[in-house]
Design a protein around this nucleic acid. Structure first.
Length: 424
RNA sequence: GGAGAGGUGGCAGAGUGGUUGAAUGCGGCAGUCUCGAAAACUGUUGUAGCGGUAACGCUAUCGAGGGUUCGAAUCCCUCCUUCUCCGCCA
């Protein structure tokens, strides 16, 4: 969430940045109005509490001296009741502000290209060579079926559409990819973690996924637990409510998890095979760093994510998202897209975002900043996340790009020590 | 799932209704001493909100949320969580 003080002190600049995101700015006026009420209520309530506290001390002294204090007690009884009504109002306005704030996205960074829609995203890099085939290209579904490595029908039988079943060398290839990516990212300085995949509401709120995106989540009502849409959620929450040391930053984590998305509202879109699934595998990168380092860390994470594709020799491009298309929690965001030779289009395989202090404010992840005069100040850290990478779309690009005339798939060089075979 | 015992400041650990933001110890920071260090001694040391240029003041905070009371770390209720024992189980 945004800093209420930032909104209070610079409402116009906040609004202007929201306009760049095509957001309605009237919410800011509502927040400001409620905030004004809130400050007023705090001041009244606290003045009354001050009175109550001091008179209560007087009563204590009088009781000790065996003096009669019934007048003061009667008076304070009224004051206490008054405090109660003010605090009730305060609680109401607090939750009103909180709710409004939960739907206001992060502000875009000045370097983010302005735009009205995803059409205004900027392609900043294309890497590799587009392969040409002297035979009819098969798509990943056809290949998967013919080689008996992917079984979407049986996946559907087990769970429903969008829950893929990997078999034989397909399962091994998937596992090889995951292990390869984890090893690479460990080399890049990320500490590997294995996290819970069901998380509580507080963790979802801290990651700013709920309430805004609650409909996109699998939710276990009985226990109020959510299936994670990305490992970003549990990894970000590792340090919830903690104060980190300055010299341990940046803290970089990588972790593999299954990811679950209901994809509500996108039925009928990209329904083929792996293109849009409810369960997929992903190695996630998370970075906690000092605020002044977050944009350079973002570039490093982009390097680390694309490094995987380079080693696998997969044709990809990097898109810098425009102000209208960056994610809710992000201030700046790159998408990495891989090429599908069968679909003849780019598929998003990764998104690398700087979420600045937007998530860490709610998650309360801070660090002790050491100032010049040796004093310390607790300050929010910045949090970044990136997929490094998601396997399902990567699998599409890989299978299609590495297919042979005979209908086999050759395993990329870098993966062979992981798979133990060269061809499927 | 059943029975019992706990959750207090960075940590350890007092405190069962009235100057207790919280004794004491350890740790951290600053200083004295020292060529320097250790030891010793002295001081200081949570977080957040509101007001103030600031010094500072006020408010909240003893797992979380409610309640009782003029006043709650202390009493009551609900929830979370940790430990021990029993049961069940990958």
């Amino acid at each position: 969430m945004l800093d209420i003080k930032l909104i209070r002190d610079n409402p116009e600049s906040v609004k202007n940045k929201l306009i760049l995101r095509n957001e309605d700015t009237s919410v800011i006026d509502k927040i400001l109005e409620a905030d004004g009420k809130r400050l007023n209520l705090i001041s009244v309530s606290e003045t009354l509490k001050e009175l109550r506290n001091s008179v209560s001390d007087e009563i204590a002294v009088m009781k000790k001296n065996k003096q009669d204090s019934s007048d003061k007690i009667a008076e304070m009884k009224k004051v206490s009741e008054e405090i109660k009504t003010y605090d009730e109002k305060l609680r109401k306005v607090d939750s009103e502000i909180d709710l409004l704030l939960k739907y206001v996205p992060n502000l875009p960074h000045d370097s983010v290209p302005h735009g009205k829609s995803e059409k205004d995203n900027k392609e900043i890099l294309i890497w590799g060579k587009l392969k040409s085939f002297d035979f009819k290209v098969r798509d990943h579904i056809e290949l998967g079926k013919a080689l008996d490595i992917l079984d979407f029908e049986r996946g559907t039988k087990i769970s429903g559409s969008g829950f893929p079943l990997y078999k034989g060398k397909g399962a091994k290839l998937e596992r090889a990819l995951i292990n390869f990516m984890l090893d690479e990212q460990s080399k890049n300085g990320y500490k590997e973690v294995m996290t819970p995949v069901l998380v509580n509401r507080a963790s979802m709120e801290a990651a700013e996924k709920v309430p805004k995106f609650e409909e996109d989540m699998y939710h276990m009502e009985k226990d109020d637990l959510f299936a994670i849409p990305t490992a970003e959620v549990p990894i970000l929450n590792i340090h919830r409510d903690e104060i980190l040391k300055q010299d341990e930053l940046p803290l970089r984590y990588c972790g593999f998890t299954n990811c679950f998305r209901r994809e509500a509202g996108s039925y009928g879109k990209d329904t083929k095979g792996f293109l849009r699934v409810h369960q997929f595998n992903k190695v996630e990168l998370i970075n906690f760093c000092k605020p002044e380092d977050s944009y350079s860390e973002l570039e490093k994470m982009l390097e680390d994510a694309t490094g995987i594709l380079k080693k696998l020799n997969i044709y990809f491009r990097v898109i810098e998202l425009c102000t209208a298309d960056i994610g809710f929690a992000a201030s700046k965001c790159y998408d990495i897209e891989v090429w599908s030779h069968a679909e003849n289009k780019w598929l998003e395989a990764s998104s690398v975002s700087n979420c600045t202090d937007f998530q860490t404010r709610r998650a309360m992840v801070r660090y002790k900043k050491i100032l010049d005069n040796r004093k310390t100040k607790t300050e929010l850290v910045h949090a970044l996340n990136g997929s490094g990478l998601a396997t399902s779309r990567l699998m599409v690009a890989l299978m299609e790009a590495y297919q042979t005339k005979e209908g086999n798939i050759s395993v990329p060089e870098a993966l062979r020590s992981y798979t133990g075979f060269d061809v499927i």
